[in-house]
Design a protein around this nucleic acid. Structure first.
Lengths: 337, 337
DNA sequence: CTGAAAGCGCTTACAG
DNA sequence: CTGAAAGCGCTTACAG
């Protein structure tokens, strides 16, 4: 049943060349005559040969493996990113080796990644520890922090303009005539939350407002529900809430509607951040900021490829534009006369 | 910056033993004295050594890599599965190598997987071609079809009891007093769709009913919307629809409510299949069949581990129980007096 | 139990 | 351009 493994030696024999010639024929810029290469490729096709990536990785370090580190996949932003990233990488002959944090054996995840000789690391979660980021960067392997950054680390980063996004939301809510504007934070030690919050407060300040109340949802569904209950516990409730990401915003909307019997946006406006697919679903119609995931993936790939090819490990920080997506979960600004 | 790579030779030198002894100390059932092993482990810890998986894979074939093949990640069922699968595998020292189908270079995905010497393959998508499944199985590498099966192939499979699930739904709708019961299919050539549909029709028949109308959504969001419009185009509309998975059901609910201004479940009942997280969200509250993803993962892991360890490639087919989850998207059966 | 040695399938200087 | 040879870091018979 198992088909026999075919090696470069087999191909060499059939093509009547040396094993080295076979190897060279499969390498981009090796010195082989067109003639030899043709013979080799023909023989290889006949035998169904393709170079063993593992063997190549051993000798050359080129494993064509990119480690992708994530904490959770329940926020739809990440699956989408993983799908796109994986496709883009596959097109370039690379593959995604997945690591979920907070699991596994005693070994640090960094050690595990190194064991596989990964050529690059993408840390795709707002909530990964900075220690881990630093540890990764120390390996000398190109690291890109996706949707987070760590100023003190030598790792590259790719984010959307979270500060500007926060600002846009603040202005939008103020122009909508809201007076008691609240904020539900994600993880307080994540850069996304810090920036979104800072931008939001700045936007509020620019129009002479301040935040009316604040609670913490830790980017979790349950945490957000709790935060919403907290903010709405007393008689006077906020008339708008910026929830630090869409995933939490859905939970907040559920609590407001079903437990507190509030109408959205008549009684209270909700805005989120990310523009995950569910934001456009009829059940939520969430006004939010779109993180340009395709552009973010492109930037990630280009940083990775540059660093892998040139072996330069110069740090880069890509910040991509944030865009306000207006739907129906928040009262609209009045038309200017 | 790059820390120097430490090999078994380095550890051997420090521990004053042979390189073979180092290797043996890191292998489960190798003959080493407790004494030697202790010395080695101590030295290893000191140097931060851990065996190079790539080298091990080369020589022994044990890459500790499991290929996971998926088509799309926008149906939340799959991200959840990948997360759980990846965690379970990591706990056992394995890792997930991700393959998105329908991308990549000319090489078949099977060839790519073989190049990485993966020890197992999980095909986690209802929509992967049977040809691909067969090709995978031919490699001699253990293959488990997750959430699909192919009777003609030697691959193992893990599914929930889709036939029974379909039956449960049929009885539930009939008991709810529905008279014009429609079905929206997923991919017609997928085993999940076939079984759910067959079970549904059987359930209908058991209580003297037949399906009132049928349309195809191909498991896509857009396809489902179109199917819903089709079913509701004429004046007499169905009073219940079984949509072959939750992902499509959300789309159907959106169309019914927003475009057709129907109330759910007052005007029309909707039931889905999978019980993805969004099904319990307030915006949908979808009555559905729960696929026991944890049990399905457990079964997958156990099949994989058994086949990898014993090198037995006997086929297994696990079918796990389906459970009806009643929420509010469908009219309830009348209480029996 | 232990060490010396062969070998996994490649890539890559090194000569020619 | 081409081949013979070394070597990547391990595992695993083979002797002892």
């Amino acid at each position: 049943m198992k088909r026999p493994k075919v090696t470069s030696g087999d191909v060499a024999k059939l093509a009547q060349v040396s094993q080295s010639a076979v190897s060279r024929s499969f390498s981009q810029d090796a010195s082989v005559s067109a003639d030899t290469r043709a013979k080799v490729l023909k023989a290889a096709r006949k035998l169904g040969y393709r170079p063993n990536v593992i063997a190549r990785a051993m000798i050359s370090g080129r494993s064509r493996l990119i480690a992708v580190l994530v904490a959770y996949l329940d926020n739809q932003f990440y699956p989408i990113v993983i799908e796109q990233l994986s496709r883009a990488l596959q097109e370039r002959g690379f593959h995604v080796l997945l690591f979920m944090t907070d699991t596994g054996n005693q070994d640090s995840v960094v050690q595990q990644m190194m064991g596989y000789q990964v050529e690059g690391i993408v840390m795709a979660s707002a909530e990964l520890s900075s220690t881990l980021a630093r540890e990764c960067a120390q390996t000398g392997i190109p690291v890109v922090l996706f949707n987070r950054y760590a100023p003190s680390s030598p790792a590259s980063s790719v984010t959307s303009d979270n500060i500007e996004g926060g600002r846009l939301l603040a202005h939008f809510l103020v122009e909508g005539g809201h007076k008691r504007i609240a904020f539900i934070a994600g993880s307080e030690d994540s850069s996304t939350n810090r920036d979104r919050e800072a931008g939001f407060y700045r936007g509020l300040a620019e129009s002479g407002h301040t935040v009316w109340a604040r609670a913490v949802g830790n980017y979790s569904f349950e945490g957000a529900a709790e935060a919403a209950r907290q903010l709405c516990a007393s008689k006077i409730k906020p008339d708008a809430i910026f929830v630090a990401n869409d995933h939490m915003a859905f939970s907040v909307m559920d609590v407001l509607r079903n437990e507190l019997k509030l109408r959205i946006p008549n009684d209270i406006s909700i805005v989120g951040y990310d523009d995950v697919p569910e934001a456009s679903w009829g059940g939520y119609n969430l006004t939010t900021i779109k993180q340009p995931s395709s552009q973010m993936i492109d930037a990630t790939i280009s940083i990775l490829m540059e660093q892998i090819e040139r072996e330069s490990v110069s740090r880069r920080a890509a910040v991509l534009p944030a865009e306000l997506i207006i739907r129906q979960s928040a009262r609209l600004p009045k038309e200017k006369p």
